[in-house]
């Protein structure tokens, strides 16, 4: 066999792998017919494979599944949250954005203090703001934590936050009138306000 070329053994393995070309297979067959040593070698290889393949199928020991399940780490909250974070990056981004946004909004949320837009010819009486009869207020009026009584004319928008707004029959308001009581309305108002400021920034 020592005189046989090495490629014959290579062909044997190609044959055993099942990816031998027709050409190689023919050469191998021709050689095996004349060379008893190589025939022997081929037999031994086939026997080796048969030997290994005769290994019995082994099954896992009893209670294997239960034992694995016991070994699994307990689903910790932290792990769960991390997993959730990984799978929802957009929600996380939105939440972070919202957090900053709301911080900005809360800081400007009306506290209990009474305030009013300073306009000439407005009368402030305790926590009540009066637009006197016969007067014309030019510009917007915003009243926080107080009431607004309109007897005269307002040439602009009127907004009352956490308060009431009363109009006399003589009153005229050229813009919009709004009363804001709820937190969400307030947020909405602030956001629209920001958007308007933003727009104004570009229009300038």
């Amino acid at each position: 066999m020592s005189t046989c070329p090495q490629y014959i053994v290579d062909y044997m393995h190609e044959y055993l792998d099942g990816d031998i070309s027709r050409e190689h297979e023919q050469q191998l067959k021709n050689h095996l017919q004349v060379c008893s040593d190589c025939r022997q070698h081929m037999h031994e290889l086939s026997d080796t494979i048969a030997f290994v393949k005769s290994a019995a199928h082994i099954t896992a020991p009893p209670y294997f599944e239960e034992k694995v399940m016991k070994r699994l780490p307990k689903e910790k909250n932290r792990v769960g949250i991390q997993k959730w974070f990984r799978r929802h990056p957009i929600i996380i981004a939105a939440a972070v954005f919202f957090l900053f946004m709301s911080a900005a909004l809360v800081s400007s949320y009306p506290n209990d203090e009474f305030s009013v837009t300073t306009q000439p010819n407005l009368i402030v009486n305790g926590q009540t703001v009066i637009v006197p009869e016969g007067e014309v207020v030019k510009g917007d009026i915003v009243v926080k934590n107080g009431d607004l009584v309109i007897e005269g004319e307002v040439d602009g928008n009127v907004t009352v936050i956490n308060g009431g707004q009363y109009m006399a029959s003589t009153s005229v308001v050229t813009g919009q009138i709004k009363e804001i009581d709820e937190v969400f309305e307030w947020l909405w108002f602030e956001m629209k306000d920001m958007a308007n400021d933003f727009k104004a920034l570009f229009e300038e």
């Binding site: 199928h57 082994i58 099954t59 896992a60 020991p61 294997f64 599944e65 694995v68 399940m69 699994l72």
Partner: peptide, 15 residues
């Protein structure tokens, strides 16, 4: 749900 996965592959992997 992982127990079904273990059940399916336990013998092969153990072998």
């Amino acid at each position: 749900a992982f127990s079904d996965i273990v059940n399916l592959y336990q013998h092969k992997l153990y072998q």
